[in-house]
Amino acid sequence: MNLMQLQFSTYVRNFKRVFVWVPLVLFMSIVFLVIRMNGHGSYHYSDFNTPLILVLGFAFISLIAIPISNFKMLSPFMSFGITRKEFIFNCVVFNLVMSLVMSIIVNLTYFGQNLLYGFKMQHLYYCGIASLDHRFGTISVSILLYFGIFAILSSLTLLICAVRHTAGMYYGLSIILLVISSLLLFFSRIVGFIRWGALTSGIFISMFLIIVIVNGLSWLFTLRFEILE
């Protein structure tokens, strides 16, 4: 069993750990909800493609779960002689591979959904985001697009894990910022001050990203993390 197999194995077995990361899922859901709302602050059932939403949710949760399981499960194996470089390299590669897999699954769901709704053959050419808006191009572009989104999401989670591992204070702060920005965005949409809500939420999100990216990257590049229990 090599490191990559170990990662996949631990990922499958520790999927439930994702629920610790409710704030991030909450944020994503609220953003999604806000985007899908019509101009009157309400939404209609038909706005949602149920299978797609489920698959997207699964993909998001999975890609959040991967770095967590990597961290939880792999770091103690460093007593078996794994170097930090090897550990991080495996985490990043595994994240990217899983992002690609999830992107393909999401696009296949679009494809299946189109079949289900009786689209004509020429529409099947367009999948994923492309099926919603033809400007995004073909299935390959759609896969790349989702791959990008998922890779960013999983990398961000990896960085959050890194921050959590090294600087608990920054970790706590980043989670608080994320929750505040989600709530701001949501309530401003409800009361109709969407512009101000988006602005303040954007400020908080920027602070969150700065904390996570700066601290996380410094952790990854300096390779100075200890195995603490």
Binding site: L6, S9, R13, M73, P76, E229
Partner: peptide
């Protein structure tokens, strides 16, 4: 002393 192992292994 505290052996580490991924859960479920």
């Amino acid at each position: 002393e505290n052996v580490f192992c991924p859960k479920g292994f």
